[in-house]
Amino acid sequence: MAQQSTLEWFGTTTFRLRTPNLTIFLDAWLQRPPSIPQHLSVNEVTEADYIFISHAHFDHLPGASELALRTGAIVVANSTAISCLERAGVPSNQLLQVAGGERIPLFTRAIREAARSGTCALAPGPPGAPPLPHPSLAVVAAHCWPSLHCLIPASPTNMPATLDTGLAYPLTPEQKNWGSTLDVNRGMIYGLLAIGDYVPAEQRDGKLQTFVQWLEDVNTHRGCFSGHDGGQLMFNFVLPEDKVEPVEAALAKGEAAYKTLLWQAHLGAYEGIVRNMKPKPDVAILGAAGRPNHDGRPFVGTAAEFLREEVNWLDKPKRVVWCLHDECPVKPFTVDVKVATELVEKDTARATRVLDMTHAKLYPIFPSH
C-alpha cells in the first residue's frame, strides 16, 4: 500500500486512488476501443480493494467485472450497473448497491476476512445478513451523493470535434424548455450504441469502424454496460492522510487529522447537495465535458462558468483535477479545458490550483499548501 495518498489517471474518468490502507478504483474503463490509448490493462492490475462506479455507460463500466473477478474487490454502484455486473458473473458478496445518501465504511482486506471468520467486532444486523465489520474499524469513509450526467451540447450531426469550455453552445427552444437526461438516454440507446445500424460500413472512417466493432465485441464478453446511466453518483472520500488508523479516530481529532477527495465524473450537479456537502473536499475531481446540467436543467453559460460555480459551492478546494476531457472514440473527441482552468484559478486568486494530470503517472494527491 502507498505510504501517502496517491492518484493515477487512466483516461476519461478512471482513476486509481491509493491510500496507506486501501487501493480504490474510481470507474474502471480498462476495456477500451483500440482507437484510443490503453493506459492500463486489467491484466496488469494485481490489487484492488474497492471499485466505485459513477454510472453504467460504455465509457465508465467496462472492465469493472473483470477487475472485480480478478482481485476480489467490492464494487459500489447504482442498481443498473449492479445488474450488469451480476449478468457478468460477479458474486453478490462483492456487490454493494447504492443510490445516493449512503455513508459507506471501507475496510482493509484483513478486517473483511476477520469479519467472515468472526474474529473482529461486527456491525449489528438481521440474523441472515452476511457478517460485516463494525463501522468503527473502517479506515476510509465514502459518502455517496446523487449527481447529474451532463447534457448534450449539440445534435449528433453537428457535434464539434473539440468542445471548448470557454464557449456557450446555443440552446434550441426544445433544449431550453425540455432538455434533460432523457435526451442523453435516447441519444445513447438509439444513437451512439446503434451507430453500426445506421452508418453504412463504407461511410465509416477507421476510428468509427473500430468503435462499432468494439461495441459488438464488448457486449459478448464481461465488459457489459447500459444505455441508461442508472442514476449518476458522486463520492466524497474521507481518509486519515498518511496514517493507518480508523477513520472515526481521525474525525474525532478534527479537520487537521483527515483529508477529503471528491470524485464527480460528469459536468452536472444538484447545487444544494454540492453547497451543503460536509466535509468539503481538499481535492475535487470534476467532469469537464458536455453541456453543464444544473439541477436537471441546461446551464445558461459556458462549461468554464459552471465549473467556477461548482468550485465556489465546494468552498474552493485546494486542488482541482479535470476528467472526461481527453480522447474519446467518437465526437467530441476531446475537450479544451484551458478557459476553465484559467477562470477557476483567477476567480479563487489561485487558492484553488488545477492539477493537469498525465496519464498513468503517480501523483501525491493532497497538496501541502
Score class of each variant (00 low, 15 high):
32 R>T: 15
38 Q>I: 13
19 T>G: 00
292 P>I: 10
182 L>F: 12
200 P>R: 08
120 C>Q: 02
84 C>F: 01
364 P>V: 13
263 W>C: 13
302 T>G: 09
253 K>A: 04
52 F>P: 03
289 A>F: 05
144 C>M: 02
80 T>Q: 00
90 V>T: 06
117 S>E: 15
224 C>R: 03
194 A>P: 13
163 L>T: 10
129 A>F: 15
361 K>W: 09
280 K>C: 07
103 R>F: 10
31 Q>P: 02
103 R>W: 15
154 A>H: 08
270 Y>P: 13
157 T>H: 13
166 G>C: 02
276 N>L: 11
26 L>Q: 05
271 E>C: 05
4 Q>D: 14
200 P>Y: 03
165 T>F: 02
248 E>Q: 12
170 P>W: 02
196 G>F: 08
133 P>L: 07
137 L>R: 00
290 G>S: 02
204 R>C: 09
234 M>C: 13
327 E>I: 01
151 L>Q: 07
229 D>I: 04
12 T>M: 08
165 T>K: 00
213 Q>I: 05
225 F>W: 04
136 S>A: 02
296 G>M: 06
281 P>Q: 07
212 V>P: 05
16 R>Y: 08
37 P>I: 09
275 R>A: 09
223 G>Q: 03
306 F>R: 07
294 H>F: 11
161 A>M: 12
171 L>Y: 10
136 S>Q: 06
357 M>C: 12
264 Q>T: 10
11 G>H: 06
312 N>K: 11
